[in-house]
């Protein structure tokens, strides 16, 4: 469709933004692809490595572990918040909630707080003398210092951050569903489960897609949280993630090419996730 009138001056308007964008985002991205083809320590002259940096990501244990940990984090950052959000939205929509703006403000609040601050707050909770041990009666357990529980603990923080987002999205979406649909479902004799399947799930498809995309990408990009909460990749390297590997390899262990390759892989994954979820959820392009 031909929106707007023909104007060459459009190039001039778009130019400054394009220049900054190309110089500081697009060019670095391509440069990352280029660097990923070399074995380079960041100081001396690099040597051509072809695709071997990518090949070793599959064979080498450290990289595989980092991507495996992201898989676990996705459960906590995405699956759990979306499930909780759906259950709650279903349970809550029948009652006209007084003070809904208050609840929305509070539930969404974790989304706007710097991750480094979130990390400090939760470090205290997971500490041997922290609130979690007090509640569970497990005296002196260092949740973040134990390789069996460190990743789990980071995951719980992810659930804390993302659940509010899912709930706000779903409560908003459910508010737009016409009451007639619920009445019709009830007339057909649908119980809560039937109502959920027949009305709520189809109505919230778009919102579920948005929530999944946002949270899966947040899990994929996790850095601040693990870097702050579990220094040096956690006990026994149990909380390494791709972004942490990028940082560590590029700036500490002199494997710039390998770091760049991981960067390319998470970029491709981010695009894939966005594409697939948008397709499945069938959301219209804005």
């Amino acid at each position: 469709m031909a929106v707007g009138e023909p104007r060459r001056v459009g190039y001039l308007y778009a130019l400054p933004a394009l220049l900054v964008y190309v110089a500081f985002l697009l060019f670095p991205l391509l440069h990352s692809g280029w660097l990923s083809l070399f074995a380079w320590d960041g100081l001396s002259l690099g040597t051509w490595a072809g695709l071997s940096n990518y090949a070793s990501l599959f064979s080498e244990e450290g990289a595989a572990a980092a991507f495996g940990h992201v898989g676990v984090l996705i459960l906590f950052f995405s699956v759990l918040p979306v499930c909780i959000g759906l259950v709650l939205a279903t349970a809550l929509h029948r009652v006209r909630i007084r003070g809904l703006p208050f609840f929305r403000t509070v539930l969404f609040l974790p989304q706007v707080i710097a991750m480094v601050v979130v990390a400090v707050a939760w470090q205290r909770i997971f500490a041997p003398d922290g609130a979690l041990n007090f509640v569970l009666g497990t005296e002196g357990k260092a949740w973040l210092g134990d390789s069996a529980t460190a990743l789990l603990s980071v995951g719980i923080v992810g659930t804390w951050v993302q659940t509010g987002l899912a709930m706000v999205l779903f409560l908003g979406g459910i508010g737009k569903v016409s009451a007639d649909l619920f009445d019709a479902a009830r007339l057909d004799g649908a119980g809560p489960a039937g109502e959920f399947r027949a009305v709520i799930l189809p109505a919230l498809r778009g919102e579920i897609g948005v929530a999944l995309t946002l949270t899966v990408i947040a899990a994929l990009r996790t850095f601040d949280l693990v870097y702050m909460m579990t220094p040096l990749g956690g006990p026994g390297g149990s909380t390494t993630v791709p972004a942490y590997e990028i940082y560590q390899r590029a700036f500490h262990t002199g494997q710039v090419g390998s770091a760049a390759a991981i960067g390319v892989v998470i970029t491709v994954l981010a695009f894939l996730v966005t594409y697939v979820i948008t397709r499945v959820a069938g959301r219209e392009r804005a």
Binding site: P28, G42, R221, F223, A243, I266
Partner: peptide, 13 residues
Amino acid sequence: TVPSEAVVVPLYY
């Protein structure tokens, strides 16, 4: 969609 974590290495150099 480009994660900033992916471009931080080339940006630095």
